[in-house]
């Protein structure tokens, strides 16, 4: 392969992985923006999404819908919906009673929710890897010098489509505007007649649904799922959210894509290679925390009394 071909290939790979990071990062960022919580359970929500997608998909495979993509899309939507509901329930049961408690309490609660989720799935699956059978072919084709598979193209398009829909929702709808307003000033939102708890619930629904979508897509992409699959992508997505500027949605998407690209290109650096991929990401995070802690799109925020 020529250098140009390698570049193109890594660009595509980076965008694809980055879009997964971005989808998960959005959930971290939205929740942080609205209730200032680092939702540790978010990575497990992503994992849960993959498993719900797997169950739905096996059902569709049995009922012989015929078209592999149709089954995947339906599984994706079912998983997004159910996991969205799960996110709202977690918010209602675990986080809402903690909203007025000190910040540390809710953070510990989030850790507990995370452990509860992954231990539950671990027990249910006996800690085994589960194959994610999609029935898709792996035939590749070329666009110029770029080698692609149908799966990868569809996944990338789907991820970008989801981000686009989210962006429209947040910038155009009244609920989206209320979300942004709450992250700016919660008390004043109440004086506008905004039911803050309801908007927080919607935020959890949307963030969890997007993580579930990423989970299902990861299942389709890697072909297996397991109870611990959320761990690394959780860290990466969190890194992406911080790099982009936590609490800022376009930042989460941008951070995700950027991190994906960086990792993908880092595998090409001589003597570093893919084994060092994670080290590279977190070194990048540390550099950001030192030199631009507010992230790319973030601004310095003065603490209000």
């Amino acid at each position: 392969m020529t250098l140009w071909e390698i570049f193109l290939q890594q660009l595509f790979n980076g965008l694809l992985i980055g879009s997964f990071y971005g989808l998960v990062a959005i959930g971290y960022s939205m929740v942080y923006g609205i209730i200032k919580l680092l939702n540790f359970a978010h990575a497990d929500i992503y994992m849960g999404g993959a498993f719900v997608g797997l169950i739905a998909l096996s059902f569709f495979a049995d009922s012989a819908i015929g078209n592999a993509w149709l089954g995947i899309v339906l599984s994706l939507l079912i998983s997004m919906f159910l996991i969205g509901i799960l996110g709202v329930l977690i918010q209602r049961v675990a986080y809402r009673p903690m909203l007025k408690a000190p910040r540390l309490s809710i953070l510990i609660t989030a850790l507990a929710v995370s452990m509860l989720l992954y231990n539950t799935v671990m027990l249910l699956t006996h800690g085994q890897f589960r194959p994610f059978r999609t029935g898709l072919t792996h035939d590749s084709f070329f666009v110029g010098a770029l080698r692609l598979t149908e799966t990868r193209v569809v996944l990338l398009v789907a991820a970008i489509l989801l981000m686009f829909i989210l962006h429209q929702f947040v910038t155009r709808s009244m609920y989206g505007k209320a979300m942004r307003a709450i992250s700016l000033d919660r008390d004043t939102c109440q004086l506008m007649g905004i039911n803050v708890y309801k908007i927080v619930a919607i935020t959890f629904f949307v963030g969890s649904a997007l993580a579930a979508a990423a989970g299902v897509m990861a299942g389709v992409f890697y072909g297996t799922v397991h109870f611990y699959m959320g761990f690394f992508i959780g860290l990466k997505a969190f890194t992406a959210a911080v790099i982009g500027g936590i609490g800022i949605l376009p930042g989460a998407m941008l951070g995700g894509l950027l991190l994906g690209l960086l990792e993908s290109f880092a595998t090409q650096i001589p003597f570093i290679g893919s084994v060092w991929q994670n080290v590279f990401s977190f070194v990048f995070l540390i550099l950001f925390l030192i030199f631009k802690p507010t992230g790319i799109l973030g601004r310095a925020e003065s603490e209000r009394m």
């Binding site: 000033d185 004043t188 939102c189 109440q190 004086l191 506008m192 007649g193 905004i194």
Partner: peptide, 30 residues
């Protein structure tokens, strides 16, 4: 608070408290 607003009692807080990072139109829409 939000149901009191729905009834028609509205409170403009001290220091205006507009949403500085939203546009004028978005402020009004909210």
């Amino acid at each position: 608070p939000h149901s009191i607003v729905e009834m028609g009692v509205i409170h403009v807080p001290e220091g205006r408290m507009i949403f500085k990072e939203l546009t004028v139109r978005e402020n009004l829409e909210l």
